[in-house]
Amino acid sequence: MRYLMGIRRKAMSQSRRRPAPGMASVHLIAWAFMLLWMGAADRVLASAWTVQLTLMRDTIEDAMIMPSALFIDQEREQYYVVDSGKNRLLSFNRQGALLNVFNAGGALKTPFDMVRTEDGMIWVVEKGRNSLTSIDLLGKKTTPHTLRSREGAVYPHRLETDGEQLFVQDSASGDIIVYDSGLREQQRFVCTECSQGFFDFKVASGKIWALDWLGKSVYVLAMSGTVEMTIRLGDEVTYPVSLALGPGGYLFVLDRHSRQVVVFDPDGAFKYRLLQQGIATGQLYYPVEILFDPWDGMCIVDEGNARVEVYQQ
């Protein structure tokens, strides 16, 4: 009992102890400054992205219609834009100057995404004929391939490469299927929790970052297929259509309906949002894809504004 009373007395004496008035003000100011700084840091990060480059065609007659994807060739320092509305691919140099316009002799039918593998082969998702089409530039040969798997026909939507293998997101199954250069199925990444499967994905840091748009979640998968982490985007997004892994391991999610980029930290916590709806430079109308180039540029493909804008921090 005496022991308990002792504790109580000690607590009371501590509660009566007050810091000197001047000292309290200093503490208060320090805390306020710290809180302000912590809040402001995110805002500074959020406001620091500005447009450095715009990939588009200058004339109204030759303007892109519904550009749908971007591929970046680090070795050649080139950007490739898929102009789905005009059935062509455009290449730009790192400074944004147009290099080439390519339509495979008019053979492309609603191209949607593309990659270039290390062997120089260009692979194009052609939605108009449901094909993963190979383009051999040296051999001047364009070959459409209709993919099939044990589940039935494959309907390619998004396409990535690690240089050799092709990672194909199949609309019909919602799975990501890995093919070798001979288009033999190597592996399949399945989302067992998603009602609609994956919608977009990126291969980064030896992992697959895959977006379940309807479930508003991002799954981080090891190359073995195991889900290592699930990030719930929740009400921070309305209609997420694309994702990219940005500097510092931050996750950048493109929200088509809010016309913003919503940023999450490596632990999946919401940090800040970027950009706004509009037509002017630095604004988004109907954005469709986000990715980072090797020079830390955040690239956003905007169907509605018929352009790709590259932002730098």
Binding site: T110, F112, R129, S171, A172
Partner: peptide, 15 residues
């Protein structure tokens, strides 16, 4: 459904 934007999405294996 063979278009750039489609409702061809997974649902019990049949969109």
């Amino acid at each position: 459904m063979l278009a750039s934007h489609t409702h061809l999405t997974r649902r019990d294996g049949n969109a």
